[in-house]
Simulated assay, not measured.
Amino acid sequence: MAAKPSDRICVTGATSTIGSLLLPMLREKGLSTLALGRKPVSGGAGDSWRYLDLADTAAGLGGIAADALIHTAALWLLPDWLEKFSACGVRRLIAFSSTSRFTKRASASSYELDVVGKLIAAEDQVAAECERLGIAWTIFRPTLIYGGHGGDRNVADIARLIRRFGFFPLFGAGGGLRQPVNARDLAVACVQSLDRAETHNKAYNLSGGETLAYVDMVRRIFETLGRRPIFIRIPFTAFRLAVLLARLHPRFAHLTPDMALRMEADLVFEHGEASRDFGYAPGKFDLAYLTAMH
């Protein structure tokens, strides 16, 4: 069932992996878009861009008029801005959380536990604030995101490691199941659900269209790069040390030793409700974008 059309769309995190793919899709549908973020969009992806640092909660949104907001930045940055966006006319919200709120709740990493806590709290705050303000909300919780322009912190980082060292460190057998989801499929989900009343005031787990073991996911990356798969199985203590060293580089500051333990865990989620409500149909694990990475 179609809801009231949303013609003027604000997109936060416009240069993010999802946001950069979403803007051209919205324009193709003839929608007016305003990209909001700390860096300007490139290639004319949005009708206009405006600087906005979501961490600066004292900033305003003067002069902005919009029907809908698609928030692709960190979810915990959103609650403090909802009243301001409501005053701009926003009555529809799509925002991204993560299935990490479920899979990392038992993590030994204080960093990961902090992220989980912020995600759970933010989901509750967004739902409550939207109900108070009369905003129809939808929250998407993707599984392992990949794709876009090589900016993901999952598959692209594994590919960089393989290119640099020619092998991949593995803890255990790496048999835990994964459902990598392409950032493009997530951008499409935003467009599909934007004016669908069935999606109002709901949260959806969005997984990829193919389920494979962690070791097979990495093997596929090797093969796409034209490399012979080489795995070096190492004990947890050695993996922990390697992660601590890698974290010295800003690019890998998000890595934690618990990643090794999760190589053996099944992180699988159904997306049937999203398929039913708005036609979500993710593709298989497609690594064509890696060939364009340097």
Score class of each variant (00 low, 15 high):
K4S: 10
R8S: 09
V11W: 05
A14P: 03
I18Y: 08
S20N: 08
L21V: 12
E28K: 13
L31I: 08
L34N: 00
A35N: 02
L36T: 02
K39L: 06
A45F: 06
L61D: 12
A65E: 15
L69M: 07
H71G: 10
A73L: 13
A74N: 11
W76R: 04
W81G: 07
E83F: 10
F85D: 01
L93A: 03
S98P: 07
D114G: 15
D114L: 13
A122Y: 05
D124R: 14
A127K: 14
A127D: 00
A127W: 06
A128D: 14
A128E: 14
C130A: 12
I139K: 01
F140A: 01
G147R: 07
G148K: 03
D152E: 06
R153T: 15
V155M: 14
A159F: 04
R160M: 13
F165S: 11
F171R: 03
G175L: 12
G176C: 04
V181H: 01
A189R: 01
A189W: 01
V191G: 03
E198S: 11
Y204R: 09
N205H: 13
V215R: 15
D216Q: 14
M217I: 03
R228Q: 11
I230G: 00
I230M: 11
F231N: 02
F231D: 00
A238F: 06
R240F: 05
R247V: 06
P250L: 04
R251S: 06
L255Q: 08
D258C: 01
V268Y: 08
G272Y: 10
A274D: 02
D277W: 08
G283Q: 13
A288D: 08
H294A: 13
H294Y: 08
